[in-house]
Simulated scan of single mutants.
Amino acid sequence: MENVRPIGADVYEIDTRMAGCPGVTAGYLILADRPCLIETGTSTSTPTVRKALSALGIGPDDLATVVVTHIHLDHAGGVGDIAAAYPSAEIVVHERGARHLADPSRLLASARMVWGDKLDTLFGTLRPTEASRIRALGETGTIDLGFGRHLSCYYTPGHAKHHVGLLDSLTGDLYVGDAAGVYLPETGDLRPATPPPDFDLDAALKSIDLFRSLQPERVLFTHYGPVEDVQPILERAAEELRIWVDLTKQAKAEGLDLDHAVAMVREKTKQRYKTTEGDPTLQGLETLTGAEANVAGIMHWLDRTQQG
Protein backbone atom coordinates (compact mmCIF):
# COMPACT_ATOMS: atom_id res chain seq x y z
CA MET A 1 0.00 0.00 0.00
CA GLU A 2 1.23 3.48 -0.83
CA ASN A 3 0.51 4.77 2.67
CA VAL A 4 2.55 2.03 4.41
CA ARG A 5 6.33 2.25 4.64
CA PRO A 6 8.70 -0.20 6.34
CA ILE A 7 11.25 1.71 8.41
CA GLY A 8 13.26 -1.16 9.86
CA ALA A 9 13.14 -3.73 12.67
CA ASP A 10 9.55 -4.77 11.85
CA VAL A 11 8.30 -1.20 12.30
CA TYR A 12 5.89 0.22 9.72
CA GLU A 13 4.93 3.85 9.28
CA ILE A 14 1.24 4.21 8.39
CA ASP A 15 0.08 7.48 6.85
CA THR A 16 -3.40 7.86 8.35
CA ARG A 17 -4.40 10.33 5.62
CA MET A 18 -5.97 12.71 8.11
CA ALA A 19 -8.86 14.53 6.42
CA GLY A 20 -7.59 13.02 3.18
CA CYS A 21 -4.21 14.77 3.44
CA PRO A 22 -0.96 12.81 3.09
CA GLY A 23 2.00 13.37 5.38
CA VAL A 24 0.11 14.95 8.28
CA THR A 25 -0.33 12.21 10.90
CA ALA A 26 1.54 8.92 11.16
CA GLY A 27 0.67 5.80 13.08
CA TYR A 28 3.32 3.15 13.68
CA LEU A 29 2.85 -0.61 13.77
CA ILE A 30 5.49 -2.61 15.59
CA LEU A 31 5.02 -6.05 14.05
CA ALA A 32 6.52 -7.91 17.01
CA ASP A 33 5.33 -11.14 18.61
CA ARG A 34 2.71 -9.00 20.33
CA PRO A 35 1.84 -6.45 17.63
CA CYS A 36 1.44 -2.88 18.84
CA LEU A 37 -0.12 0.12 17.12
CA ILE A 38 1.19 3.50 18.26
CA GLU A 39 -1.30 6.30 17.46
CA THR A 40 -4.64 5.57 15.78
CA GLY A 41 -5.11 8.85 13.97
CA THR A 42 -8.61 10.33 13.79
CA SER A 43 -11.90 8.48 13.74
CA THR A 44 -12.29 9.33 10.07
CA SER A 45 -8.88 7.73 9.44
CA THR A 46 -9.97 4.37 10.85
CA PRO A 47 -10.81 2.73 7.48
CA THR A 48 -7.37 3.74 6.15
CA VAL A 49 -5.60 2.41 9.24
CA ARG A 50 -7.54 -0.85 9.20
CA LYS A 51 -6.69 -1.45 5.54
CA ALA A 52 -3.04 -0.85 6.34
CA LEU A 53 -3.10 -3.26 9.27
CA SER A 54 -4.83 -5.88 7.13
CA ALA A 55 -2.21 -5.46 4.41
CA LEU A 56 0.44 -6.11 7.08
CA GLY A 57 -1.28 -9.33 8.13
CA ILE A 58 -3.03 -8.03 11.25
CA GLY A 59 -6.48 -9.58 11.62
CA PRO A 60 -9.17 -8.66 14.16
CA ASP A 61 -7.70 -10.88 16.89
CA ASP A 62 -4.01 -10.22 16.18
CA LEU A 63 -3.42 -6.74 17.58
CA ALA A 64 -2.17 -7.00 21.17
CA THR A 65 -1.83 -3.34 22.12
CA VAL A 66 -2.91 0.12 21.02
CA VAL A 67 -1.04 2.98 22.70
CA VAL A 68 -1.53 6.70 22.15
CA THR A 69 1.03 9.31 23.16
CA HIS A 70 -1.83 11.61 24.21
CA ILE A 71 -5.55 12.04 23.67
CA HIS A 72 -5.64 14.91 21.17
CA LEU A 73 -7.98 13.81 18.42
CA ASP A 74 -5.39 13.70 15.64
CA HIS A 75 -3.57 11.05 17.69
CA ALA A 76 -6.35 9.23 19.54
CA GLY A 77 -9.62 10.08 17.81
CA GLY A 78 -9.81 6.60 16.34
CA VAL A 79 -9.22 4.70 19.58
CA GLY A 80 -12.86 3.70 20.08
CA ASP A 81 -13.23 2.48 16.51
CA ILE A 82 -9.93 0.58 16.55
CA ALA A 83 -10.76 -0.96 19.94
CA ALA A 84 -14.07 -2.22 18.56
CA ALA A 85 -12.41 -3.64 15.44
CA TYR A 86 -9.60 -5.37 17.39
CA PRO A 87 -11.31 -6.78 20.50
CA SER A 88 -8.19 -8.48 21.87
CA ALA A 89 -6.14 -5.28 22.02
CA GLU A 90 -5.34 -3.56 25.31
CA ILE A 91 -5.65 0.24 25.08
CA VAL A 92 -2.79 2.10 26.80
CA VAL A 93 -2.82 5.81 27.66
CA HIS A 94 -1.58 8.11 30.41
CA GLU A 95 -3.78 8.15 33.50
CA ARG A 96 -4.78 11.77 32.88
CA GLY A 97 -6.31 10.77 29.57
CA ALA A 98 -7.85 7.41 30.46
CA ARG A 99 -11.25 8.67 31.61
CA HIS A 100 -11.67 10.68 28.41
CA LEU A 101 -11.29 7.54 26.29
CA ALA A 102 -13.89 5.76 28.42
CA ASP A 103 -16.25 8.75 28.30
CA PRO A 104 -15.26 11.20 25.52
CA SER A 105 -18.20 13.58 26.03
CA ARG A 106 -16.26 16.38 27.75
CA LEU A 107 -13.31 16.08 25.37
CA LEU A 108 -15.59 16.25 22.34
CA ALA A 109 -17.53 19.19 23.77
CA SER A 110 -14.29 21.11 24.28
CA ALA A 111 -13.09 20.21 20.80
CA ARG A 112 -16.42 21.35 19.33
CA MET A 113 -15.95 24.76 20.97
CA VAL A 114 -12.55 25.10 19.29
CA TRP A 115 -13.27 23.59 15.88
CA GLY A 116 -17.01 24.07 15.37
CA ASP A 117 -18.32 22.28 12.27
CA LYS A 118 -14.73 21.52 11.18
CA LEU A 119 -14.61 18.91 13.94
CA ASP A 120 -16.64 16.42 11.91
CA THR A 121 -14.52 16.81 8.78
CA LEU A 122 -11.12 16.87 10.47
CA PHE A 123 -11.60 14.40 13.28
CA GLY A 124 -14.97 12.67 13.28
CA THR A 125 -16.30 11.35 16.59
CA LEU A 126 -14.21 9.69 19.29
CA ARG A 127 -16.27 6.71 20.40
CA PRO A 128 -16.09 5.34 23.96
CA THR A 129 -13.79 2.46 24.86
CA GLU A 130 -14.75 -0.01 27.56
CA ALA A 131 -12.99 1.06 30.74
CA SER A 132 -11.99 -2.56 31.46
CA ARG A 133 -9.84 -2.55 28.32
CA ILE A 134 -7.92 0.62 29.19
CA ARG A 135 -4.57 0.52 31.00
CA ALA A 136 -3.62 3.83 32.57
CA LEU A 137 0.07 4.75 32.78
CA GLY A 138 1.68 6.80 35.53
CA GLU A 139 5.15 8.36 35.48
CA THR A 140 6.55 5.24 33.82
CA GLY A 141 5.32 1.92 32.50
CA THR A 142 6.11 -0.99 30.21
CA ILE A 143 4.36 -2.48 27.19
CA ASP A 144 5.28 -6.09 26.41
CA LEU A 145 6.04 -6.72 22.73
CA GLY A 146 7.06 -10.35 23.27
CA PHE A 147 10.36 -12.27 23.29
CA GLY A 148 11.93 -9.76 25.68
CA ARG A 149 11.18 -6.71 23.52
CA HIS A 150 9.22 -3.94 25.18
CA LEU A 151 8.28 -0.29 25.09
CA SER A 152 9.32 1.79 28.09
CA CYS A 153 6.81 4.58 28.69
CA TYR A 154 7.71 7.97 30.18
CA TYR A 155 5.44 10.79 31.28
CA THR A 156 6.38 13.81 29.13
CA PRO A 157 4.07 16.79 29.70
CA GLY A 158 4.51 20.26 28.26
CA HIS A 159 2.52 19.88 25.07
CA ALA A 160 -0.28 18.14 26.97
CA LYS A 161 -0.83 17.02 30.56
CA HIS A 162 -1.60 13.49 29.36
CA HIS A 163 1.45 12.95 27.11
CA VAL A 164 3.85 10.01 27.14
CA GLY A 165 6.97 9.13 25.16
CA LEU A 166 7.82 5.54 24.24
CA LEU A 167 11.23 3.90 23.85
CA ASP A 168 11.64 0.57 22.01
CA SER A 169 14.10 -1.66 23.89
CA LEU A 170 15.21 -3.46 20.72
CA THR A 171 15.73 -0.57 18.32
CA GLY A 172 16.21 2.48 20.51
CA ASP A 173 13.36 4.13 18.60
CA LEU A 174 11.79 6.96 20.59
CA TYR A 175 8.17 7.84 19.81
CA VAL A 176 7.79 11.48 20.80
CA GLY A 177 4.20 12.29 19.81
CA ASP A 178 4.03 16.10 19.83
CA ALA A 179 6.43 16.66 22.74
CA ALA A 180 9.33 17.58 20.44
CA GLY A 181 7.25 19.55 17.94
CA VAL A 182 6.32 19.01 14.31
CA TYR A 183 8.90 17.76 11.82
CA LEU A 184 8.64 18.28 8.05
CA PRO A 185 10.71 15.59 6.32
CA GLU A 186 10.62 17.37 2.96
CA THR A 187 12.66 20.28 4.29
CA GLY A 188 14.04 19.14 7.65
CA ASP A 189 12.16 21.98 9.33
CA LEU A 190 11.08 21.57 12.94
CA ARG A 191 8.37 23.77 14.41
CA PRO A 192 7.00 23.87 17.95
CA ALA A 193 3.59 22.55 18.97
CA THR A 194 2.35 24.74 21.83
CA PRO A 195 -1.47 24.76 21.71
CA PRO A 196 -3.79 25.75 24.54
CA PRO A 197 -4.76 24.86 27.15
CA ASP A 198 -1.90 22.69 28.47
CA PHE A 199 1.29 24.16 27.02
CA ASP A 200 3.91 24.68 29.72
CA LEU A 201 7.42 25.77 28.72
CA ASP A 202 9.22 24.46 31.78
CA ALA A 203 7.54 21.04 31.54
CA ALA A 204 8.16 20.90 27.79
CA LEU A 205 11.88 21.60 28.18
CA LYS A 206 12.16 18.99 30.95
CA SER A 207 10.50 16.44 28.67
CA ILE A 208 12.99 17.18 25.90
CA ASP A 209 15.82 16.84 28.43
CA LEU A 210 14.40 13.44 29.38
CA PHE A 211 14.36 12.42 25.72
CA ARG A 212 18.02 13.41 25.43
CA SER A 213 18.95 11.41 28.52
CA LEU A 214 17.38 8.25 27.06
CA GLN A 215 19.95 8.40 24.24
CA PRO A 216 17.64 7.05 21.54
CA GLU A 217 18.91 5.77 18.22
CA ARG A 218 16.10 7.43 16.30
CA VAL A 219 13.23 9.86 16.95
CA LEU A 220 9.84 9.05 15.44
CA PHE A 221 7.47 12.00 15.07
CA THR A 222 3.72 11.54 14.72
CA HIS A 223 3.96 14.68 12.55
CA TYR A 224 5.93 13.33 10.69
CA GLY A 225 8.28 10.42 10.33
CA PRO A 226 11.66 9.14 11.63
CA VAL A 227 14.79 11.23 12.23
CA GLU A 228 18.18 9.59 12.83
CA ASP A 229 20.14 12.74 13.72
CA VAL A 230 18.79 12.58 17.27
CA GLN A 231 20.64 15.06 19.46
CA PRO A 232 20.56 17.95 16.94
CA ILE A 233 16.82 17.53 16.38
CA LEU A 234 16.13 17.53 20.12
CA GLU A 235 18.34 20.58 20.59
CA ARG A 236 16.41 22.28 17.81
CA ALA A 237 13.13 21.35 19.53
CA ALA A 238 14.18 23.19 22.69
CA GLU A 239 15.54 26.15 20.71
CA GLU A 240 12.27 26.57 18.78
CA LEU A 241 10.27 26.57 22.00
CA ARG A 242 12.43 29.29 23.55
CA ILE A 243 12.33 31.46 20.43
CA TRP A 244 8.54 31.28 20.04
CA VAL A 245 8.00 31.95 23.74
CA ASP A 246 10.40 34.94 23.72
CA LEU A 247 8.69 36.45 20.67
CA THR A 248 5.24 35.94 22.13
CA LYS A 249 6.39 37.55 25.39
CA GLN A 250 7.59 40.52 23.35
CA ALA A 251 4.24 40.78 21.57
CA LYS A 252 2.40 40.59 24.89
CA ALA A 253 4.64 43.26 26.41
CA GLU A 254 3.81 45.50 23.45
CA GLY A 255 0.11 45.03 24.14
CA LEU A 256 -0.65 43.23 20.88
CA ASP A 257 -3.86 41.24 20.60
CA LEU A 258 -3.74 37.63 19.41
CA ASP A 259 -4.10 38.39 15.70
CA HIS A 260 -1.32 40.97 15.73
CA ALA A 261 0.87 38.79 17.93
CA VAL A 262 0.47 35.91 15.47
CA ALA A 263 1.37 38.17 12.57
CA MET A 264 4.48 39.41 14.38
CA VAL A 265 5.67 35.94 15.36
CA ARG A 266 5.09 34.64 11.84
CA GLU A 267 7.10 37.48 10.36
CA LYS A 268 10.00 37.10 12.78
CA THR A 269 10.24 33.31 12.45
CA LYS A 270 9.69 32.85 8.71
CA GLN A 271 13.41 32.97 7.91
CA ARG A 272 13.96 29.99 10.21
CA TYR A 273 12.11 27.64 7.89
CA LYS A 274 12.72 26.53 4.33
CA THR A 275 9.00 26.12 3.78
CA THR A 276 6.86 29.24 3.95
CA GLU A 277 3.50 29.42 5.66
CA GLY A 278 1.68 29.42 2.30
CA ASP A 279 3.35 26.28 0.96
CA PRO A 280 0.84 23.48 0.20
CA THR A 281 2.93 20.96 2.15
CA LEU A 282 2.15 22.90 5.33
CA GLN A 283 -1.58 23.33 4.92
CA GLY A 284 -2.66 20.24 6.84
CA LEU A 285 -0.22 20.83 9.66
CA GLU A 286 -0.98 24.53 9.75
CA THR A 287 -4.60 23.65 10.47
CA LEU A 288 -3.60 21.43 13.37
CA THR A 289 -0.69 23.25 14.97
CA GLY A 290 -0.02 26.46 13.11
CA ALA A 291 1.17 29.84 14.30
CA GLU A 292 -2.22 30.89 15.66
CA ALA A 293 -2.58 27.81 17.87
CA ASN A 294 1.03 28.06 19.00
CA VAL A 295 0.87 31.73 19.96
CA ALA A 296 -2.52 31.26 21.64
CA GLY A 297 -1.09 28.42 23.72
CA ILE A 298 1.92 30.45 24.76
CA MET A 299 -0.26 33.45 25.61
CA HIS A 300 -2.44 31.20 27.75
CA TRP A 301 0.63 29.90 29.57
CA LEU A 302 1.96 33.44 30.09
CA ASP A 303 -1.36 34.56 31.53
CA ARG A 304 -1.59 31.48 33.76
CA THR A 305 1.90 31.88 35.14
CA GLN A 306 1.90 35.69 35.04
CA GLN A 307 5.11 35.71 33.02
CA GLY A 308 6.02 38.28 30.39
Rank of each mutant, 00 (worst) to 15 (best):
M1P: 12
D10S: 15
D10C: 14
E13K: 13
E13Y: 11
P22A: 14
P22W: 11
D33H: 15
P35L: 08
C36T: 14
L37W: 06
L37T: 05
T40N: 01
G41Q: 04
T42F: 03
T42P: 05
T44G: 10
T44R: 14
V49K: 03
G57K: 06
G59M: 04
G59H: 07
D61F: 00
D61V: 00
T65Q: 07
T65S: 12
T65K: 07
V66A: 01
T69C: 11
H72L: 00
A76I: 00
G77T: 01
G80S: 02
G80M: 02
I82A: 02
A84F: 00
S88I: 00
A89R: 02
E90Y: 04
E90S: 12
H94S: 08
E95C: 09
P104S: 02
R106D: 12
L107H: 00
L108R: 00
S110P: 01
S110L: 10
A111W: 00
R112K: 10
V114Q: 07
D117H: 12
L119Q: 02
P128M: 03
T129Q: 00
T129V: 14
E130I: 00
E130R: 13
G138E: 07
F147M: 14
G148V: 03
R149D: 10
H150K: 11
S152F: 13
S152P: 08
T156G: 04
H162G: 11
S169N: 05
V182M: 08
P185I: 03
P185E: 11
G188C: 03
G188Q: 03
D198K: 03
F199I: 07
F199T: 09
L210W: 07
V219S: 02
V219N: 02
V219H: 04
L220N: 06
T222N: 04
Y224G: 03
I233W: 02
I233K: 04
E235V: 12
A237P: 08
E239Y: 15
L241D: 10
I243M: 11
I243C: 12
Q250D: 15
K252V: 15
A253Y: 01
A253L: 12
A253T: 08
L258G: 04
D259Y: 08
V262D: 09
V262N: 10
K274F: 01
T276I: 10
T276H: 07
T276D: 10
G278D: 15
Q283N: 02
G284N: 01
G284I: 01
T287V: 15
T287P: 04
L288F: 07
T289F: 13
T289D: 12
A291N: 14
G297R: 10
H300A: 15
W301S: 13
D303A: 12
D303L: 09
T305A: 13
T305N: 12
T305F: 11
Q306K: 09
